[in-house]
Amino acid sequence: MNDFPSPHTVKQQLQACRSKEETFKALVALSKRLPRLSDEEKTDENQVKGCESAVWLIVEGSAEQRYFKADSDAKLMRGVLVAIISLITGKTQQAIQEMDLKTELAELNLSSYLTSSRTNGVLSILARLQA
């Protein structure tokens, strides 16, 4: 359904990064794998609040098998969204809830996106995915 790279590919690409700059470039590359949402899908309801960039998230499928659609007006955020979704797509609701996504993202060199700074919304995204 969603043509996301496998978690293995994402891990390989991001874990190979040796600097912030390399992670940046890897995220830009990953961002291209995210199908964009239509304007009709970018509703207020689908928007995740608390992000400096606009982020929309749509949860699909059933509790047995979850799929996600997402978009952002910022490219790096689209890369981060690809990384997150690749980890959880196709899993059961319960499996997703039981995952330690923060740790998994930290292992992908994305910890600087996880700090609860004033401008960071990744934590609100995770909260919504695991709700």
């Binding site: 700059e21 940046f24 400096e52 960039s53 910022a74 490219k75 790096l76």
Partner: peptide
């Protein structure tokens, strides 16, 4: 997005 410019 300015946030992307900022990050780079």
């Amino acid at each position: 997005h300015t946030i992307d410019l900022n990050a780079y």
